[in-house]
Amino acid sequence: NIFRISADLSHLASIVILLETIRKTRQVDGISLKTQLLYVLVFCTRYLDLLTFRWTSLYNTLMKFFFIGTSIYVIKLMQECKIKNPVAYKDMMARDTFQIKYLLGPSAILAMVFNYKFTILELCWSFSVWLESVAILPQLFMLSRSGKAGTLTTHYIFALGLYRALYIPNWIWRYYTENRFEKLSIFTGLLQTALYSDFFYIYYKKVIKGGGFELP
């Protein structure tokens, strides 16, 4: 459906914007390495079903490889910046101080409690949706502490937030057309979108209505 396609396209756009940000500035200014590492973990645990070869569609399979590949590529680009621009890299690391154990631990526990089946594949899948819902926190934390962000960084976060927000009308659509109600995705998706809500509001006020981007 239209919402699902738009969501996936905005997810793709967010990654293109992120890669463009790193390429253009040749440094990692404003990007949280911790959030990016969490996304590698999210995609690697979610798409373990690639190994079972029970593929749903060519589209799904290609997108899964794309998300795993680009998330690892981002880490590689950021590590290159460590050599090319060590001062900026150190500056980023000094500001990227969110303790991710507070995201990893609860996500693992929630995955053990809420899952569709107590199998490795399903537990990893559930862990990935819980972790994804909070993976942006180190990035938002970094932004709120520095107070300012580059335009591309804000577009990246916006596109990434929009992706999960668009999944919500997709789930409503699927509930009415397929009677499908996938409670874990829906709950974590709502949580994820809620975490972006402040950001969306500031983005709307500052970026769309003009003016610089500044977080309180």
């Binding site: 979610r46 749903t56 899964k64 569709y116 089946k117 997709n170 409670k183 995705s185």
Partner: peptide, 10 residues
């Protein structure tokens, strides 16, 4: 059923 949810979303 809920026990056999197909993860066809990304």
């Amino acid at each position: 059923s809920q026990n056999e949810v197909e993860h066809d979303e990304l």
